[in-house]
Simulated assay, not measured.
Amino acid sequence: MGVKGPASYFPSIEQKYGRPIAEWQQLITDSPLTKHMELAAWLKSEHGLGHGHANALVAHTLADAGS
């Protein structure tokens, strides 16, 4: 069974944008923004991520932070 959910995007995110997932998660964690859609919009506008990739990173990072 393959990886499901937001993490299933991680290999293509790393390949396309050239940063490890941990680095993206650190950027999200360090951001003063806290809302999912604000963070996703910020990743898209400031870092050029696509909508699906930005959403996957934010969802996974916020889920980890809450656990």
Rank of each mutant, 00 (worst) to 15 (best):
M1R: 02
M1E: 02
M1L: 06
G2D: 08
V3H: 06
V3C: 03
V3G: 03
V3F: 00
V3D: 01
K4N: 03
K4W: 00
K4P: 04
K4S: 08
G5D: 01
P6I: 00
P6E: 00
A7Q: 07
A7V: 07
A7I: 06
Y9R: 04
F10T: 00
F10S: 05
F10M: 05
P11Q: 04
S12M: 15
S12D: 13
I13S: 07
I13Y: 01
I13W: 02
I13Q: 05
I13M: 04
E14D: 12
E14H: 10
E14Q: 12
Q15K: 15
Q15S: 13
K16M: 14
K16S: 14
Y17M: 07
Y17G: 10
Y17W: 04
Y17N: 12
Y17I: 13
G18D: 06
G18E: 03
G18M: 13
R19W: 10
R19A: 12
R19F: 14
R19H: 14
R19G: 05
P20C: 08
P20K: 15
I21D: 02
I21L: 07
I21C: 09
I21Q: 08
A22M: 04
E23F: 13
E23R: 15
E23C: 13
Q25E: 15
Q25K: 15
Q26V: 07
L27W: 11
L27R: 09
L27G: 02
L27M: 14
T29W: 15
T29C: 12
D30C: 05
S31W: 06
S31A: 01
S31V: 08
S31L: 10
P32W: 08
P32K: 08
L33E: 03
L33A: 05
L33N: 10
K35G: 12
K35C: 04
H36I: 11
H36Y: 00
M37C: 14
M37P: 07
M37H: 14
M37E: 09
E38C: 13
E38K: 09
E38M: 11
L39T: 09
A40V: 04
A40H: 08
A40M: 03
A40N: 04
A41E: 10
W42E: 06
W42R: 12
W42K: 03
W42G: 05
L43K: 09
K44C: 06
S45Y: 04
S45L: 09
S45N: 11
E46T: 13
E46S: 14
E46R: 11
E46I: 00
H47S: 01
H47Y: 14
G48S: 09
G48L: 03
G48P: 03
L49E: 03
L49T: 07
G50T: 07
G50K: 10
G50S: 10
H51D: 09
H51A: 15
G52S: 09
G52N: 04
G52Y: 07
H53S: 13
A56W: 01
L57I: 03
V58A: 01
V58S: 01
V58G: 00
A59D: 08
A59E: 01
H60S: 11
H60K: 12
H60G: 01
H60Y: 09
H60E: 13
H60N: 07
T61H: 06
T61W: 00
L62F: 02
L62V: 02
L62N: 00
L62G: 06
A63V: 09
A63Q: 03
A63C: 05
D64Y: 11
A65G: 14
A65Q: 13
G66I: 11
G66R: 14
S67N: 14
S67Q: 15
S67F: 15
S67E: 15
